[in-house]
Design a protein around this nucleic acid. Structure first.
Lengths: 201, 201
DNA sequence: CAAAAAATGGACTGTCAAGTCCAAAAAATT
DNA sequence: AATTTTTTGGACTTGACAGTCCATTTTTTG
């Protein structure tokens, strides 16, 4: 994988995105390498040329790909949690993002098939969670700075709880198909941030 | 499956529990029928005799088995959320239960391999979530009755949010190995219940 | 006790999908 | 233009594993 021609890079990307798309539609279990090949009009040798580690390496690449999307899909709101309306707007975006995604969570599907203990899969997920939590925590700190959140609250701790709310809501959505729990949990998490705020700012 | 001899029922149970144990230790992907056979000292014909649907039927049975355990493991506390100390005690039990379980969540593993859309898998999970949420909601109503929770709160809605907190905390634990998020989210959820309570009871 | 039904052993088959290999085409480099 | 590197096609190998089959033993039932 020393040098990649522009053409080569394009092929690699095509395989990656094709695999991601197929997984989003059918899940990992129902995705074979041949499926990806057909969909992307490539051959076995190409797949193994660009992903020498085979299926496992491809799945890991898909996991990374999807992990990146998660945060990107929350922008710009996630990086701008500077007022209560902004928090609300972010909340709406998150709900909408997962409503669109439907019942299949590609990232969860992939990592669960890879095995959550796998170093690679674990790295992808923990890094995503860390970044996500850190961005929320930044928002919390900002609200503390402008006197809208009790300064006694630990921003990271609170962000972690809120993140868990989201994850749980999404998990439930995966079987129920409804975003009601996600909304309820997110609303509760945000309400809790506002609740203990100083008398007046 | 008309009639089952006592011996037959025992064998069936042995297969089921052996499968569940192997899955808990190694995950679904790394569990073949032969693994189960070896571990339970049974033969192919037995497995297909008691689970004519083969692998899929067995996995579904394991899902049911694990789903039952989830609620049972929270007893008696889950059914007795009648004071704040009782809630705390339940919280501790939940955290402890999942701490013991470690990084592998058998139920999540099984249903995700079956495909969350599968009617069978979906039925098992949604029923579990419903019962779980209902029991929490009962606890909330009781606290409202004794004036410890704002009667204006919708018990089912609040229970749903709390349930999402747990699910998310567990999901994060599956990759991080830590129960910190679970604890933070649960604490926040319970704190939220207490927060809006009437001035004095 | 005899007949029927249930339980068991384990070899065998078929399929499916991951991964290998080599030769040919296209592109880059000199 | 010649040579080297990268890209591509696709047949082939290999292994694993779900599921089938039938003969045999054990248990139940009348």
């Amino acid at each position: 994988m020393r040098s990649l021609t522009r053409k080569g890079a394009a092929t690699r990307q095509r395989i990656l995105e094709g695999a991601a798309a197929h997984i989003r539609e059918h899940g990992v279990a129902a995705t074979t390498l041949d499926d990806v090949l057909d969909r992307t009009a490539t051959s076995k040798s190409q797949l193994f040329h660009y992903f020498p580690g085979g299926r496992e390496e491809l799945l890991l690449a898909v996991a990374r790909f999807e992990a990146d999307r998660v945060l990107e899909d929350q922008r710009p709101q996630l990086g701008d949690l500077t007022s209560w309306p902004a928090w609300q707007s972010w909340r709406d975006k998150v709900v909408d993002r997962y409503r669109r995604q439907g019942r299949l969570c590609p990232l969860n599907s992939v990592t669960s098939h890879l095995g959550n203990g796998t170093p690679g899969a674990q790295a992808v997920v923990t890094e995503l969670l860390h970044r996500w939590q850190a961005e929320i925590a930044t928002g919390v700190r900002h609200m503390q700075d402008i006197g809208e959140i009790d300064p006694g609250l630990d921003p990271d701790h609170a962000a972690g709880a809120l993140l868990a709310c989201i994850q749980g809501g999404v998990l439930i959505q995966m079987s129920s198909g409804q975003t009601t729990h996600l909304e309820a949990a997110l609303d509760m998490g945000i309400a809790h941030l506002r609740a203990g705020r100083p008398p007046q700012a």
